[in-house]
Design a protein around this nucleic acid. Structure first.
Length: 874
RNA sequence: GGGCUCGUGGUCUAGUGGUUAUGACGCUUCCCUUACAAGGAAGAGAUCGGUGGUUCGACUCCGCCCGAGCCCA
């Protein structure tokens, strides 16, 4: 039995171990039992393995866990798997940092082995911490995105989409670090403030005497200049649009074009476009179908396009070109500035843009369908759909899935050395690594040539992590029947997709796209979006600000259940500030539940297992009826993923109604009268409370449940969610009785009496039938009388209360007149109608406000609709 | 710079057209009441970010401004 103080350190660790050991959260996979209607499947985005678990993980998974536990108790066969996303750049960089190596120095397979080793350590730690948070994951259902099985899935996805004509290969700019000589992704770049120089360079207009000035920090890109841009609002330079400009020294002639991406504030307001100096150049190149002039190669060396400067490094070329511009009279000014440049975060070198052949998944032709797919999902909260919608409507490019990296999941592709014909792997042979494996044909089907070049790019991480529903549902190629199949079809569509709002645009969107293309179905029934965890001052936690609070720190100071309570503290989708107060409130609730449970246990040793509900004492029926209503409320809130409302409503019902109101009365009845009705009710209600709290306070409720109710040593998390009992009660009389008790408490408090001080005489004007003994028992009333007659009080009219929801629509602009008439007391009530100003209001439109005065012996207390007269002391 | 979201007592939060704005934490006062003083009772504390507008009526709807978060540039 629960005794002493609750000891979360011991209790929580004990249950966490047993839940794993006993497979408490196992998905029941036997073929007969599995059916799509009872399987509740969750597909969480697998965390990127890039370090240790942080609050974002803890918070997001805790919210999912509320749903998982709730649905499990409702009888669902919950499939709650767990994956690690460890095929990406983040994991590579973790490996490089950890082992102090460079991926370029190893071949792909060897480097991947190193990644696996490093990631395994982190994954084990991560798993332990997830279990330490009490997340009800089925640890038999785990995957790694780098595993051969997932590589097979990912490559199969590529081949399927290729065969369906959804993928194409095209030359496009890639971000390149000239120092590391590797392509990098956008996420590996960072902004850096650097000192530089603005060079004002004079450009001549072709076939004209005119010239204009361009300010640039990168004169070495002049040979790569393919256009000049003017802002549409730039009246001064508007006349240049449509002309041709001649590049000084190099002499190429380029068009002058207008575009609103020009920054009027910078330099002269006229800007050159070079292929490629920055991201905007790429946009212009694509938007205006410009020429391609590559002036800088992989090593940062000028190419033949640069003429006499070819072979120089970009720094050397810059100095030489500036000197020559000066000599030619084209350099008008040179001044120092600081500006923001994109640098490779590892080495701080400014990035360049190179043009590479890259694979794309076509999106733009089907955005309407993808938008419709998003509409078919239930969004919690609904407002987050807007982000998905805006993202799709703003899409300008197809999805580039090529990454020029030395590890990752390889493209299952070879090219004919002669004609570049694409040869993809056989589906049966997946996964393949074209760098090590041979192509499936001996000769090119197109030209007959027998030498092939392997693709050495790897997939974008999202190309794989967008397949998690298919990975979880066992999507694979059935060679016998020549089709793809789902091994665990009952899981798909997934009932719940939980994730943060920061990854709606790429992760969720790409997952919808891929799964929709492969199955023709939207992968998720519902999407639950969580907000971000902020610090106590509502600011983002970041290492540089030093305001990061780790889950480890918190869990060492507070019970995990307190953290879970805190996590349920805001509307889903809203950001949640870290809050010690929130954690302490959780701790207090756990303690209250524990202490109340001790009391209930001590009172209900010989509680009857059954009791005719109609025979229960009025107060007991009232409590169970109120609890029925609370069960309906909590269930509805949890169904709608309104964890905060479920939590707060249940907490206050438990604390105020059960502990403060009911328990105080019931314990006296049990102690004084050994009342079976009270014992039965206490036990029945308490048992239900333990279940209702279980999704949030997973550990404390498990301890209580196994101790007090654990028939066959079963977990509360496998117990059935409570259904209302349908108990009949006089709810109004109960509420009045509680109001009378409340009024008497206030009376004692106001008169500085202790709560168990006795009161001589109480007269209640109001219906508290069946509750008289309860009131006098708990409030220590010597003599309690009730009266169904009106109280002997005078009523003084103090005003008129209008029901504006009726008066407003009816009288509109007349309302101020009515109000001022009432204010001036120029109104009368005739036959139930209120006449004020020129209006006549029906009786339902107003109520007369009255102040009740009592002049008899004793003191009058107001208790809701009832009036109480107390005589005491003398 | 663009899009979306959020802004409510000191702090966190509920409320999303109907007029004394919910609750928690903290604060003040009282009460050792054999589950819990880490408890109970009562109380103080908010012109609902600012500003215009729509409306008989706005915390709620609309415009603009300010602050914060996320994504995109």
């Amino acid at each position: 039995m629960p005794s002493g103080e609750y000891d979360p350190v011991t209790v929580e660790a004990k249950w966490q171990d047993r839940w794993v050991d006993e497979d408490t959260y196992a998905y029941a996979e036997d073929a007969d039992a599995v059916d799509p209607d009872t399987a509740f499947s969750i597909d969480s985005p697998p965390p990127t393995v890039s370090g240790s678990l942080h609050w974002g993980h803890a918070y997001g998974f805790t919210l999912q866990d509320f749903v998982a536990r709730f649905e499990r108790m409702r009888g669902e066969n919950v499939f709650f798997p767990f994956g690690f996303d460890d095929n990406g750049i983040a994991s590579e960089r973790l490996t490089e940092d950890e082992l102090d190596v460079r991926h370029q120095d190893y071949d792909r397979r060897e480097f991947q082995r190193m990644c696996r080793e490093v990631c395994e350590g982190y994954e084990a730690e991560f798993t332990e911490k997830m279990q330490g948070l009490g997340i009800s994951i089925d640890w038999e259902q785990t995957y790694q995105t780098i595993s051969p099985a997932v590589q097979r899935t990912s490559q199969l996805s590529f081949i399927e989409l290729y065969d369906e004509g959804r993928e194409y290969r095209q030359r496009a700019p890639a971000i390149w670090c000239p120092e590391c000589e590797t392509a990098i992704s956008q996420v590996e770049t960072e902004d850096d403030e650097q000192d530089s120089h603005f060079h004002d360079i004079e450009f001549d207009v072709v076939n004209s005497e005119e010239s204009f000035v361009i300010s640039t920090t990168r004169p070495e890109l002049l040979p790569a200049c393919v256009a000049v841009f003017v802002h549409p609002d730039d009246d001064e330079n508007e006349h240049l649009v449509g002309e041709e400009a001649r590049i000084p020294i190099f002499g190429q002639e380029v068009p002058v074009i207008e575009d609103d991406r020009v920054d009027l504030e910078t330099g002269s307001g006229i800007v050159m476009c070079c292929t490629f100096g920055d991201q905007t150049d790429i946009e212009w190149y694509q938007a205006h179908d410009l020429d391609l002039r590559i002036a800088i190669d992989e090593s940062g060396t000028l190419t033949d396009v640069a003429g006499e400067y070819a072979g120089m490094s970009s720094e050397e070329a810059r100095e030489a070109i500036v000197a020559d511009l000066d000599e030619a009279g084209a350099l008008l000014d040179r001044r120092a500035i600081t500006h923001t440049v994109n640098v490779h975060e590892r080495c701080g070198t400014s990035v360049e843009f190179l043009v590479k052949d890259q694979w794309y998944i076509e999106l733009l032709d089907k955005t309407d369908e993808y938008l419709e797919a998003g509409r078919q999902m239930d969004w919690y909260p609904e407002k987050m759909f807007t982000r998905y919608k805006n993202w799709i409507e703003g899409l300008q490019w197809d999805w580039s899935i090529s990454r020029q990296r030395s590890s990752g999941i390889p493209f299952p592709v070879w090219y004919c050395e002669e004609c570049e014909h694409v040869v993809v792997a056989e589906r049966e042979s997946l996964p393949v690594d074209p760098l090590a494996d041979d192509p499936p044909v001996d000769a090119c089907p197109e030209c007959g040539h027998d030498e092939f070049v392997p693709e050495d790019d790897v997939f974008d991480t999202w190309a794989t992590s967008s397949l998690t529903p298919l990975i979880n549902a066992g999507w694979d190629w059935d060679a016998e029947n020549g089709e793809t199949t789902l091994d665990r079809e009952e899981l798909y569509q997934f009932d719940l997709r939980p994730q943060g709002h920061d990854i709606i645009s790429f992760w969720l969107f790409h997952t919808v796209v891929k799964c929709y293309e492969h199955t023709g179905e939207v992968p998720f029934d519902s999407v639950m979006i969580n907000g971000m965890v902020l610090d106590e001052n509502r600011e983002k936690m970041s290492k540089s600000k030093g305001n990061v609070v780790s889950p480890d720190e918190v869990v060492s100071k507070y019970p995990v259940d307190a953290a879970r309570y805190w996590a349920a503290g805001s509307a889903v989708g809203d950001d949640l500030p870290y809050s010690e107060k929130g954690l302490r409130a959780g701790e207090k609730l756990i303690r209250k539940l524990w202490n109340a449970s001790k009391l209930v246990e001590s009172l209900t040793h010989e509680a009857p297992a059954e009791f005719d509900h109609d025979e229960l004492h009025a107060l007991d029926r009232w409590l169970l009826a109120e609890l029925d209503r609370e069960i309906d409320r909590v269930t509805e809130k949890l169904e709608n993923r309104e964890f905060s409302k479920a939590r707060d409503g249940l907490r206050s019902f438990f604390w105020s109604t059960f502990c403060d109101d009911y328990l105080e009365i019931a314990k006296q009845r049990v102690r004084e009268d050994d009342d079976d009705s009270a014992k039965y009710t206490l036990r029945t209600a308490h048992r239900r409370f333990v279940k209702l709290f279980a999704p949030v306070l997973a550990h404390a409720t498990e301890e209580l449940w196994r101790d007090m109710y654990g028939e066959e040593a079963a977990s509360v998390h496998r117990a059935a969610w409570p259904e209302p009992l349908g108990v009949d009660a006089d709810v109004a009389a109960g509420e009045t009785a509680m109001a009378v008790v409340g009024a008497l408490r206030k009376y004692k408090s106001d008169n500085q009496l202790s709560m168990n001080a006795s009161v001589d005489h109480v007269l209640v004007y109001g219906d508290v039938r069946g509750f008289e003994e309860d009131i006098s028992g708990v409030m220590h009333v010597e003599e309690l009388e009730t009266s169904s007659e009106g109280p002997p009080i005078e009523s003084v009219v103090t005003g008129v209360d209008l029901d504006y929801s009726l008066v407003g629509p009816e009288f509109g602009a007349q309302v101020p007149d009515i109000e001022s008439a009432i204010e001036a007391e120029e109104y009368e009530v005739v036959d139930g109608e209120l006449r004020a100003g020129d209006a006549e209001l029906d009786s339902e439109m107003f109520t007369i406000e009255e102040e009740r005065k009592y002049t008899g012996e004793g003191e009058m207390l107001e208790a809701g609709d009832a009036v109480v007269i107390v005589r005491h002391g003398d």
